[in-house]
Design a protein around this nucleic acid. Sequence first.
DNA 1: TTTATCATGTAAGTTGTTACATGATTCG
DNA 2: CGAATCATGTAACAACTTACATGATAAA
Lengths: 192, 192
Amino acid sequence: MAEKKTLDYVILAGLIRKPRSGYDLTKWMERETSHFFVVGHSSIYPALARMEREGLVRYEVVASERGPKRKVYSITEVGRVTLLSWAQEPAVEREVRDEQLVKTLCYGFLPEEMVLERLQQEKERHQRKLEMYEGFERGLQAQLREGVISQEAYLGTLLTLRRGIGTEKGYAAWCDEAAEMISSATPSRTNS
Amino acid sequence: MAEKKTLDYVILAGLIRKPRSGYDLTKWMERETSHFFVVGHSSIYPALARMEREGLVRYEVVASERGPKRKVYSITEVGRVTLLSWAQEPAVEREVRDEQLVKTLCYGFLPEEMVLERLQQEKERHQRKLEMYEGFERGLQAQLREGVISQEAYLGTLLTLRRGIGTEKGYAAWCDEAAEMISSATPSRTNS
DNA sequence: TTTATCATGTAAGTTGTTACATGATTCG
DNA sequence: CGAATCATGTAACAACTTACATGATAAA
């Protein structure tokens, strides 16, 4: 039915791993999918309610150890089939909205020092993310060894994490490349 | 005023290079910004009309060599200041919506052969994009040599193009990495 | 004359965000 | 007892997308 909504499939991909509440899903997305898909909690709760009506997921109300009661959702057989048959079709183009690169379009019109400073900040941001993802990767491997997650769940998460690591390394390298190009392109722009 | 709308700044970044019509801007975005920002023409025309009211751009109606009359927009001094002062502030996090990676989350739950085929297709897609961007880069260098574009405009466009090239190379490399991880993780999954 | 490209727009619908709103439990 | 975290939602708004709509000019 729903030909589009990627969010639905992200939720199903979260639930095929293990049952989770809306709160858990929000945290999981922030942690493990934020480099390729992120939405706020206010999108997740209505989506879960609709998907429950559609029969893709079901829930149980469970008392929490700390905090109020939770609605713990799990994937249904219908949800499983829906997810996996979608996953085997080719993906549509990825959407990117990168403000940094829009600003970069203007770097020829701005003072060199300022631009180099921004590129340095941007590089540090990507290095921090890189370290974070590398930490997640070690944690994930530990989870597999301890049998906390299945082999099936491990593989997909590892692969996306590797993509996150590659992306951050590539972006940080670009920051260096860009800084070098700017420095060599205008060796004395501040003297003009 | 408008604290957010990245589209406005993309349009201004297009017009600071040279005056362009809505149609030209659409083509320019498809060609040169599509790897980090893309919208359809139906967003551009209303934005230009609003920005004209706000004094960021102005237009002249010019007869086209081929086709109907064009509204050729140029950036105003107010638009220039607005753009360049925005460009020197740090950028917000880039937004990514990558369906391929959502599908990748499911790759442990799918047959190995099918997944390897998808990864091969995805790799080819990125290789084609890479070739396209490398062609754009050569064209851009030629434009600079021929004096068609200014040094200021050249630098920013080159830098974003270099990022596009790095991104496509990185994604293609990930496809190989992922394929190898899958093959070695499950040497005989088809036999199970 | 029909197709492709040039050229500009509007209207309806989708999908999200931000802000608002509530309330439980635990830790310091 | 106040702050942090846990937990779930709604309402208003923003920013797009898709489809609709029109029309000029040129080449085949």
